[in-house]
Write a protein that binds this DNA or RNA. Structure first.
Length: 361
DNA sequence: GTAGGGTTAG
């Protein structure tokens, strides 16, 4: 269209800018924006803000926000939703909440509620002082988000009610929905029923089940202290070649640690690597604090060696436990002396705050 | 039928 001189509307330019961001070519999106043959509008700016945020280009995103403001363009509902999402991703929950409260007066929709519910969960500040979206008819994503929120605040019955509501409608329930359902059942002390439902959902045709779904069931059993049952389910998932990821293995390891089965926990740590799933800092933390708890110095040294070899950085808490245990035995920690030195140097600097920070995507 | 937005775990 451009080469043949056909006039390209602002709609088409906006679609192209958005499309290049979404297909992983932010450079082209920006080039095209700069070459637009007409002036951009709110839709174009919204695509830019979202696009920049998706690539972690926070300053660029906010420079577009300032352009919108300086042009006196009023944000519509889509931009409002993008801004709630943007502030949330940056951990700026207060601002997300303010934008949301402002949007209530002008008509929030399902996207708004899904976003703010997730924001509240992330901020761990569940008290918004208002009820959310009771006037709005649930759609799939908002329903999923609401169930998740209700489970987190401990309102299990309300979560189950949302599930029933969703089931009675013409919604194509998905992985998120069933995961929320199982979480609620386990929280409601109906884990036997949850296990039956789990089996039934896995057998059902046409539902894509992901690692998250299996992991939630396994983790719920672990949290209920049903370690044997949790491990049977995990092993069954392995045998049946279900999709499992690093979180699934870590949750299973947590079950073994809680059940004080450290030998098996260490074997599973090895097995996951054989299965092609690389342990991360959280996995090592689970095993290592378990070994510290059991004062199992020999296994601890072996696992710590691997952790260091693989370049996985532990959290400050776990480092402290390791040093407390091993430094009492000079002979046992000689091989780690330089590593411990480095840990001491870093105390109090950035990495201590990592756990407080919220991922910017 | 005609641009842009949303939900999950250890």
């Amino acid at each position: 269209m451009i080469c043949s001189g056909v006039s390209v509307s602002v709609n088409v330019w906006s679609m192209l800018v958005n499309g290049f961001f979404r297909s992983g070519e932010p450079r082209k999106a920006v080039d095209l924006f700069n070459k637009m043959g007409c002036s951009p509008n709110l839709v174009t700016y919204t695509s830019l803000i979202k696009g920049f945020m998706d690539y972690g280009m926070v300053d660029e995103a906010f420079s577009v926000v300032r352009i919108v403001q300086s042009k006196g363009l009023a944000a519509d509902i889509v931009l409002v939703n993008v801004m709630i999402h943007t502030f949330t991703r940056l951990g700026r929950f207060e601002e997300a909440r303010n934008v949301f409260l402002h949007s209530l007066k002008k008509g929030a929709d399902q996207y708004t509620f899904a976003t703010i519910l997730s924001s509240l969960c992330l901020s761990r500040d569940f008290d918004l002082g208002i009820t959310i979206g009771t006037e709005t008819e649930l759609d799939l994503v908002m329903g999923n988000s609401l169930m998740n929120y209700l489970c987190k605040v401990g309102n299990t019955l309300a979560a189950l009610k949302v599930f029933r509501n969703m089931s009675n409608r013409d919604l194509a329930l998905d992985c998120y929905t069933y995961t929320g359902f199982l979480t609620a059942l386990c929280q409601g002390e109906a884990y036997g029923h949850a296990l039956n439902m789990y089996d039934e959902i896995v057998k059902r045709k046409g539902i894509r089940i992901d690692a998250h779904f299996h992991t939630v069931m396994i983790d719920s059993l672990v949290e209920l202290g049903e370690y044997g049952s949790a491990m049977r389910l995990f092993n069954r998932c392995v045998l049946e070649k279900r999709e499992l990821d690093v979180v699934s293995y870590t949750v299973a390891i947590k079950g073994l640690v809680r059940g004080r089965r450290m030998e098996e926990a260490c074997s599973l740590l090895e097995k996951m690597k054989d299965d092609g799933v690389m342990p991360n800092a959280r996995t090592y933390r689970t095993v290592i604090s378990g070994l510290c708890g059991e004062k199992d110095k020999d296994r601890l040294r072996k696992v710590l060696r691997e952790c260091i070899e693989e370049g996985v950085e532990l959290d400050p808490n776990t480092k402290f436990k390791v040093v407390s245990l091993l430094s009492r035995y000079t002979r046992d920690c000689s091989e780690f002396r330089s590593v411990f030195e480095k840990w001491r140097e870093n105390v109090g600097v950035s990495d201590s705050y990592d756990e407080l920070a919220v991922s910017a995507g």
